[in-house]
Amino acid sequence: MSDTLTPRRRFLAWFSAGLGAVAAAAVGVPVIGFFFAPLMRRPVEAWRSLGPVGRFRIGETVEVRIPSPAPVPWAGEAAEMAAWLRRQGPSEFVAFSVNCTHLGCPVRWMANAQLFLCPCHGGVYYEDGAVAGGPPPRALTQYPVRVQDGNVFLRTSALPLG
């Protein structure tokens, strides 16, 4: 056996490495594609009914629960998400994401103080979602809301990201 790389050996080396790459790609494409598939899937942006308008009182902010925008049949407790809904007038509603714009923790509505407070790093928002203090960089994210046939509807969308 000599160490010289004859044309035949050179060919066999490249040929073998190439075959290996083909086999790796044949396995790798579906595996990696499967792992990255969630990036391609659009969130379910659907109008979800929150119930009749009369259920909500003007000037009040309440938690509402709606189906998750990324549903799977086995989600269990993760099948739903929450939002804050505020009735501002006879047919004016505004809906906020519960996620603090700082790092996503769930903000709490403190009805007495008329403020949203974040338990993680102390972010504070006014009743209209504007930042009142603390680290949040932006106002609370709003979801589209509409009133139709006496019912309130909220349009679900992906987790708001900074």
Binding site: P38, P69, G76
Partner: peptide, 10 residues
């Protein structure tokens, strides 16, 4: 997250 929000795949 494995999707648009926290869910089964997460």
């Amino acid at each position: 997250l494995g999707g648009a929000t926290v869910s089964g795949p997460t």
